[in-house]
Design a protein around this nucleic acid. Structure first.
Length: 584
RNA sequence: GCGCCCGUAGCUCAGUCGGAUAGAGCACUUGAUUCCUAAUCAAGGGGUCGCAGGUUCGAGUCCUGCCGGGCGCACCA
């Protein structure tokens, strides 16, 4: 149940009814009508902008529209009072009982409370991480990984059918460099002194076991033979090994994707030719010469005829090359084929999660998706800005075992998986993020992970104690659902009830905006309400949760706490963070 | 030079498809422990929402221009 949606439906029904009855214009477009909580709670529980939103098309003054509507709403049982305020807002105060009804609903549904249906089962593809398979994941990958994973979970909760995908860039020249690096390590494993790793190859120690493994399985069969012979097998073997490494890394922060898609397969299957032929047939490809970039002309720039895609017809600034000067495909061409493949697999909604350094690539990719799907598919690209690693406010220094970067694993080893995931989601994706290794391990409210976890653990603790006080009472969610909730009458208690009631709407809004960080902020707010309620008991013992001589009151309060705990667990599940049972 | 993103309290940031008197944490001041971790809470002060125009009943939010910062900028992936 979503009380916001219920009241909006009620408002819409009344407008329609008044239209039919001739008191308001008929057949108004109600799409702009919203019901939301006013910023200032003294104005009421809920407010609707209906009169303001409809004034123009109804050709009426907002207040003239608001009056009859307010009058009509007064009759509804859940609505205690109605008044018209400001330019034409209709402020509603709901009966306390209407709010309290969400508590048994939460207890009944558990963490499924908040599951929505705005997705209506529609297929969405979320592609994230997609790091080049040339080594372990590093901190630069983590934010996108966590963001994409949480976004996928959020969309699933909102009722979309989500596929989580990783595209393996296993076709480019960096894989050739990787294969050569592995071959060096292979020779090393067979006893050769290889000296320093040459410039342009991958120096990281993580390739040592790969070379050793090949030496173990294949012996010396790749020694002293032409590169032409060993290169392809080494490329394949190296990619397999690196992807195993990547998946292990992802598993440490709880990420398992549904599809790992090989870009190389697109080349092998001739799918790039295919999609380009389609574009060519529609006149969207031509041979042309691009202008040099203004203000920053590369030294070796020369006019060069290339195969170009008319990206500028679909909103990009210039047309984009599909083939390199040697005639081979650009990465962009492969990416077009890849996104076309997703479209053919049924994804009209596609989301790509990229790092900040790919910002300049967004327009052309969106243009290409529009072109190949003939406007049927929509691609949203979410750019994750950089993460600055700090320690007590200073740039963090960590040993860099894997070449020249800090790995995901080092980060997880130091602060733990839940902290990594939560902190990465405490900022909008398009804002830079400071990750302070010292602060996130503090057990204080400076640390939002701790703060939310603590709220959950505290509620668990209350439940354990209540079970000792009332051993004969059924304190399970099902048992508490029958509690006499009319006993919840303190304003701080009702505030928490109202916050819990906002959960379904929070999920819906965050999913539509593709903004999982809103979940993290909501959870922080719920935790704050709970901690506040707790401390009310310090000031006034009659507001404590466990009242030894009053099992009915205690049950009502425990029902509220269990609902709050459930919503926190429900939100943490989206973020991929374990709810804590106790803090030690 | 061009494109994208960001600019909100001293600091770090929220801000609901445009809504009412712009919010939270930190820091500062003051206060609160018989429940169940004070690992928390309550109260107070603190703002030209970068600047200037525009759109409209209404703009932190949308549009245009400028200022400041980040990222990117033929054929790399």
């Amino acid at each position: 149940m979503d009380i916001y949606a219920d009241i909006r439906a009620l408002v819409a029904a009344e407008i329609t009814r008044l239209g039919t009855a001739g008191q308001l214009p008929d057949a108004l477009d109600l799409s702009g009508v919203q019901v939301q909580a006013p910023r200032d709670a003294s104005q009421g529980d809920l407010a609707t902008n209906a009169a303001l939103a409809l004034a123009k098309q109804a050709r009426m003054k907002p207040r003239d529209l608001a009056e009859p509507l307010a009058e009509a709403l007064t009759d509804h049982g859940d609505i205690e009072s109605v008044d018209v305020a400001g330019p034409g807002f209709i402020n509603l105060r709901l009966a306390e009982g209407a709010w309290r009804r969400c508590i048994p609903a939460v207890l009944d549904r558990g963490i499924a409370f908040g599951d929505g249906d705005i997705g209506a089962g529609e297929a969405v593809n979320v592609e994230y991480v997609s790091a080049n398979p040339t080594g372990p994941l590093h901190v630069g990958h983590v934010r996108g990984a966590v963001f994409g994973d949480a976004l996928a979970a959020l969309l699933a909760k909102a009722g979309f059918t989500v596929t989580k995908e990783y595209v393996i860039n296993d076709a480019g020249s960096q894989i050739t460099a990787l294969a050569r690096s592995v071959h060096l390590r292979y020779r090393e494993a067979l006893g050769e002194a290889i000296g320093d790793i040459p410039e342009g190859l991958y120096p990281g120690d993580y390739l040592v076991p790969v070379g050793r493994a090949i030496a173990g399985s294949d012996g010396d069969k790749w020694l002293g033979v032409d590169e032409a012979e060993w290169l392809e097998p080494f490329r394949r073997r190296a990619v397999v090994e690196m992807m195993a490494l990547v998946r292990e890394d992802l598993a440490t922060i709880g990420i398992v994707q549904d599809v790992y898609f090989s870009e190389n397969q697109l080349h092998l299957d001739g799918r790039i030719d295919e999609v380009l032929a389609g574009l060519e047939a529609r006149g969207l490809i031509y041979i042309g010469v691009l202008e040099p970039p203004k203000g920053k002309k590369p030294d070796d720039w020369e006019p060069r005829p290339q195969t170009l895609f008319k990206a500028s017809e679909f909103g990009d600034d210039v047309d984009r090359p599909l083939k390199k000067s040697d005639g081979s495909y650009t990465y962009f061409a492969a990416d077009i084929a890849y996104h076309f493949d997703k479209y053919k697999r049924g994804f009209k909604r596609q989301i790509d999660v990229w790092g900040a350094d790919h910002g300049g690539y967004v327009k052309r990719m969106r243009a290409a998706v529009t072109a190949v799907s003939e406007g049927e598919a929509d691609l949203d690209v979410r750019i994750c800005q950089l993460v600055r690693l700090l320690r007590d406010g200073e740039p963090a220094k960590m040993s860099k075992r894997a070449g020249d970067f800090v790995t995901l694993r080092q980060l997880v080893d130091e602060v733990g998986r839940d902290v990594v995931r939560f902190i990465m989601l405490t900022r909008k994706n398009d804002a830079p993020l400071d990750f302070d290794l010292a602060r996130v391990r503090e057990q204080s409210k400076d640390n939002p992970v701790f703060y939310v976890q603590y709220a959950h653990a505290r509620i668990r603790s209350v439940m354990r104690n209540a079970a000792e006080t009332f051993p004969e009472v059924d304190l399970s969610p099902a048992g508490l659902a029958d509690a006499d909730l009319a006993r919840l009458s303190d304003s701080a208690e009702l505030d928490l009830v109202k916050q819990i009631a906002r959960w379904p709407r929070t999920v819906e809004a965050a999913a539509l905006a593709h903004e999982p960080h809103r979940i993290a902020f909501y959870l922080h707010d719920v935790a704050a309400s709970f901690h506040g309620l707790w401390n009310r008991g310090n000031e006034d013992p009659s507001l404590r949760f466990i009242i030894g001589e009053d099992v009915v009151l205690t049950s009502a309060r425990l029902a509220l706490l269990e609902a709050a705990r459930t919503v926190i667990a429900s939100g943490l599940a989206i973020l991929g963070v374990e709810p804590a049972e106790e803090m030690r």
